[in-house]
Computed example of a mutant assay.
Amino acid sequence: MSIPPPSGPQQPYGPPAPPHGPYAAGPSSPYGASYGGAYGPYGPYGGQAPVNGLAIGSLVLGILCFVPAVGLVLGLIALAQIRRKGERGKGMAIAGSVLSTVGLALWALTLSTGAAADFWDGFKSAANGDGSAFALDKGDCFDTPSGTLEGETFDAEKVPCSGTHDGEVFAVVTLPGGGYPGEDELSRTADDKCYALSDGYAMDTWGVPEDVDVFYFIPTPQSWRFGDRELTCLFGSTEKDGRLTGSLRGDATTLDADQVAFLNAVNAVDAVLYEEPEDHPDDDLAASRAWAGDVQRVLGEQITALRGHRWPDGAGKPVADLVEEMADARKEWARAAAAKDSDTYFTHYERGYAYVDGPTTVTAREALGLDTTVPFYEDDSGSGGGSEDAGDLQV
């Protein structure tokens, strides 16, 4: 996804690494038990000693240059076995080891020069067919095999947004290069970017169901090495076995210009209200006062924007009434920003919050054809005052 989860971010997906090749491990000897030992390169009954199976495997992998590290290891093991058992295949083991060493050098050069990104683009293009998580783009709805948005996944089937589905993509963000930042850091980045972008996709936050939250796909360490730099932001349900129904998209592609203008203004005010300091004003009055000053400033900017828009018949007066309440609230926030003590601060804080999501807001929304169901937000701000909207949003 604008609604933080109750106990940290949901466990995100990470696209799996590209395939590592046809071998899960080194091939075993095709000849079963071998002979040799004290009898040299021939068997105890005069027959020719068998060829070492690991030498064959090393040569094959060295030629393919697909998993060079495995080829090199097999070659070294094969040389040791050949010396100990008197088997044949020393030339193949040496050739396989040399070719694998060259392959490793080429892989290192590829990863250091950025050619791995080209490889990833090619792999992603090949994986971008139906049923792949790499095929998802902004506006796509999908189902996962497990029916949940937890753990890791490669499969994701696109489905029509008009029906039920597990998730809906609302943004795809390209991350900067460099070393793999780690899952925790990627999750923090996803929190920052996805929550910030969610309101731009579902602008009418009142219309987002209470059980909907922000999830995301993040790269795994393996896919990162091959150039995966995409962060995919999703909407999903927090309920067990919960699913979404219909698209949550509500932006300039689905709303009219008047609805967009109104939502841009009220969402900007909401955004600054959500930035309320965690510390109680009794503990850090200066931080609270600074935040109140920010609220005053943003209210002033959005009041100007709303007054400057030409509203359609039937919506002009309801919006004007709301703007007047916002102007009164702005004066209270200015007084809160200048408060000398926490008691005075809270007096103006509560008055400044009084208009938020009130009847005048509902009337203006109704006149513009927007959702009129006032959302419920849990208050965990610990500020001890204000409306129930004063704290961070949680689901």
Rank of each mutant, 00 (worst) to 15 (best):
H348M: 09
V374R: 11
V212K: 03
Y345C: 00
V212S: 08
L79N: 01
G352F: 01
P219Q: 05
T174H: 10
L79T: 02
Y31M: 06
L299D: 03
P68R: 00
A17V: 10
F170A: 10
G352Q: 06
A305E: 08
S383W: 14
G129Q: 07
D204W: 03
K158L: 14
E325C: 01
K85F: 11
T153L: 12
P281L: 13
G40F: 12
L368K: 04
A354V: 03
P219S: 10
P18I: 13
Y216N: 15
V260Y: 02
D284E: 09
G91K: 13
G300F: 10
G103F: 11
L106G: 12
R188N: 15
L186C: 06
Y195L: 15
G384D: 04
E332N: 03
L59M: 14
A38N: 10
E150R: 12
P44M: 15
T245N: 15
W107S: 09
V98A: 14
D121F: 12
C194T: 05
R249G: 00
W120H: 04
S383I: 08
E350F: 07
Y180S: 12
P375E: 07
P209S: 01
G246T: 04
L76P: 08
A117F: 07
T113M: 12
D328N: 01
R351E: 01
R335P: 09
A338E: 11
P312L: 09
T110W: 11
G71H: 01
D251H: 02
P209K: 01
A25Y: 13
A24I: 05
G200N: 09
A93W: 02
A93P: 04
L244R: 11
V298T: 04
D121P: 09
E168T: 03
V319H: 05
T344C: 03
A367N: 02
T344V: 14
N128I: 00
D270Y: 00
G71N: 03
S34P: 13
F123M: 11
A337T: 07
A338G: 12
N264R: 15
V208I: 12
P219N: 06
